[in-house]
Design a protein around this nucleic acid. Structure first.
Lengths: 77, 77
DNA sequence: ATGCTATGTAGCATTAATGCAATATATAAA
DNA sequence: TTTATATATTGCATTAATGCTACATAGCAT
């Protein structure tokens, strides 16, 4: 089996990032990753490693569980 | 750069697993992974994907942030 | 002694996550 | 118009995370 076989992880990265007035590049810098990576994550093209998830959560002043979920987030908050 | 270049993730998987009286195989079954994977994680030989971290946390009735951390956990609770 | 369970170790194969470069588009500002 | 910023898209290379198999060891039963 592969690592995450068609097992998506939903997230609210873009929502939180925009709320803080940050560009993807800004967030990428804070999290220490490539800015394209943020794009891939926001489009949910793949799910991050735990390390990255923790770094992003920290960069956005959120708990991992507030930003990422195995089940879809409800619209609006 | 690689994915998690020498960036360890500390965890309390073994502690929590034993507290629940589960074997690695038991936890592996609940989390849907190979039992060796649990071993690797407990020995902190590598850090899990976010999906796996969430599944393990759920299997152990814990929050991701309670089980995993970028900084070492203090001894005893 | 035999068997079973739990664990460690080692090796190999697969693939997703990430980096990075290039190009394209849209928008806003100068 | 030109410039700069933000984003999307594509493609390629690297490597860590995971699966799986096999073997070894130790403990605890029987």
């Amino acid at each position: 089996m592969s690592r995450n076989p068609e097992e998506p992880v939903y997230n609210r990265i873009e929502e939180s990032r925009v709320a803080l007035g940050l560009s993807r590049q800004d967030l990428a810098n804070k999290a220490g990753v490539h800015y394209q990576t943020i794009g891939y994550l926001e489009r949910e093209e793949y799910s991050p490693s735990l390390v990255l998830a923790i770094r992003i959560a920290k960069s956005l002043n959120h708990e991992v569980s507030e930003l990422f979920s195995l089940t879809p987030f409800k619209k609006g908050k």
